[in-house]
């Protein structure tokens, strides 16, 4: 593993984007960033700047109007980047299934690495997803090195 990856996995910066969720998962993401659950233990800080972000926490079933904005944000994030789809609607579009204005999940628009289930996804599950994203990052870095 290179030096940058070694440092990076210790301080992953978060970009949170709401693509049309009911705010339930967004609340839990905010609970995640604050004292009780405190994801800063793993080095995660919310910096709402795509140019500095490593991990994208995406909530919501992606409305038609947010589709282009989400793609645009994803392209601005430098490699290595990881996408965590938070909640049922981000994973599959479930509660808003067959609504006329939604794309049925984040993976219809950009590639997703980790899916966190739950409506709304509870902070414990989100921490689990976050840590899994970090270990995926390490795997990716090792694979890149061996190639």
């Amino acid at each position: 593993m290179g030096l940058l990856d070694k440092i990076g996995t210790k301080s992953p910066w978060i970009l949170h984007f709401d693509t049309g969720s009911c705010n339930g998962c967004d609340l839990e993401i905010w609970a995640l960033l604050t004292p009780k659950y405190d994801v800063e233990r793993f080095g995660g800080i919310n910096r709402a700047n795509p140019k500095q972000a490593d991990i994208l926490l995406i909530t919501g079933p992606v409305t038609m109007r947010c589709e282009d904005r989400l793609r645009n944000l994803y392209e601005q994030v430098p490699e290595p980047k990881l996408v965590v789809a938070c909640g049922n609607c981000a994973s599959t579009g479930a509660p808003f299934h067959n609504c006329y204005n939604v794309c049925q999940g984040v993976d219809k628009v950009i590639p997703v690495d980790v899916y966190v289930p739950g409506c709304a996804a509870c902070p414990e599950a989100l921490i689990d997803g976050f840590v899994r994203a970090l270990s995926l990052w390490e795997d990716k870095a090792r694979r890149r090195e061996s190639e």
Binding site: G20, T63, R65, Y100, N101
Partner: peptide
């Protein structure tokens, strides 16, 4: 506005 419109009233 309108980035968050899901069509709830229809659903």
């Amino acid at each position: 506005l309108g980035y968050n419109h899901r069509g709830m009233e229809y659903a």
